Amino acid sequence: MSWLSNYMHEIGCGKRRAQGAFASHRNTMCEFTAFARFMRTLGIKPRRVKDTPEFAILLYIQHCVARGIAPGTVRNTTTEIRCALRRAGRNIDYLTNAAMGISSRDRNGQKRALLPPEVDEFVARAARLNMGFALLLLLQRLLGLRRLEGLRSAPDLQLWLDCITAGDHTVPVTRGVKGGRPRAVTILMQRREETIRVLRSAVQYCHVNDGQLITGRRDSLESALNRLKAMYTTIGMKGETSSHAMRYTFAQEKALEYLQSGMEEHAVLVHVSADLGHGPSRQSFTARVYLRGIFSHFSRIMQGSRFMGCARYLIEVFNDLRDPNSSRKTRRKSGWIRK
């Protein structure tokens, strides 16, 4: 075997021992294949993965930056390299992104919530193309599903329908979830009847179409996903109005519904974050990404476009309870705020 084959074989064995999704394994191999070929071009051929020199890593990162690769992608590359070397028995955590001069990633949302006429127009275009595709779009809009979650939801449609008709307010999402983390999505109560109607139509459609909403040329998930991506492009869902914009629409409508029910503002962020599958601890991420369009409804815990954080919010609530007439507020910066 050549040096490149031996090097990549060791990377692959280490990744398999760590287990994880097939897509994660494939991404790791793709990242390291490019890195290994870069080292071979420079004549750098370490015997083992743990012997990879630091200067080779630094040169490769600068090479990626010079090629114009997005900061988020470069950060993912450095993470893959650090994790692979750790699995091989070497810790290079001191080579942080800041130490290597990688610029910060813009984590603000690149999409926006769709207006009702836009949703209707996209669904109408999808219906002319494929009725299963139109039903999948409606499920994304009503339940805040990711693209892969909607594609793989067919076996669970009857279960979701039974849950809602039985009076439950949540449906379990277990297939296609990010990181293998199942969640319970709270339905939009103001759209409960519409959700039941869409689920019934989706169940009937799957009964006569091989149990799937979308099928590809080959009987595989990859083929169906490729066809779904092409359909999004065909109806014009791209850029800020791509398929992920449906999750923004769901998140903002669900947040407003929580607020109208009298729920406290910070609890709204916790619940919306959990409904989206980000977990209850990512309130700041949910606020500045999915709920940017409705900041005015979170006056208690938002200052401009900044999230005050749970600790500061609780301090202000305590001050108000202790002295409701006092205008003095405790000043404390949120942990993630950067000027």
Rank of each mutant, 00 (worst) to 15 (best):
M1R: 09
W3V: 10
L4Q: 15
M8D: 05
H9Y: 11
R17S: 13
Q19K: 15
Q19A: 14
G20P: 06
A21N: 10
R26A: 13
A36S: 14
F38Y: 15
R40M: 08
K50Q: 10
T52L: 01
T52Y: 01
Y60L: 09
Y60G: 04
C64T: 08
C64L: 15
C64G: 01
R67L: 13
G68M: 05
N76Q: 09
T78D: 04
T79D: 04
E80D: 08
R82L: 04
C83V: 14
L85E: 06
R86N: 08
R87T: 06
N91W: 11
A98G: 09
G101E: 07
G101C: 09
D106R: 07
D106I: 15
A113F: 00
E121P: 00
R128C: 06
N130W: 05
A134Q: 03
L137V: 11
L137I: 10
L139K: 04
L139D: 00
Q140F: 08
Q140T: 08
L142D: 09
G144I: 04
G144F: 02
R146E: 08
L148Y: 07
E149S: 06
E149T: 03
A166E: 13
G167F: 11
V173R: 02
P182Y: 03
A184W: 11
R191L: 13
I196E: 13
S201K: 13
A202Q: 08
V203P: 00
Q204S: 14
C206N: 04
C206D: 09
H207R: 15
V208E: 09
R217P: 01
E222F: 10
S223K: 12
A224Q: 07
L225W: 13
N226K: 14
L228F: 15
M231C: 03
Y232A: 00
I235H: 00
M237C: 06
G239E: 01
A245H: 02
M246D: 03
Y248C: 02
T249I: 02
F250V: 12
Q252I: 07
K254A: 11
M263D: 03
V268S: 03
V270M: 11
P280N: 00
S281G: 03
R282N: 08
T286N: 02
I294K: 02
I294F: 01
S296P: 12
S296N: 12
S305L: 08
S305H: 12
G309H: 10
V317K: 09
F318T: 13
D320P: 02
P324V: 07
K329E: 07
R332I: 13
S334H: 13
I337C: 05
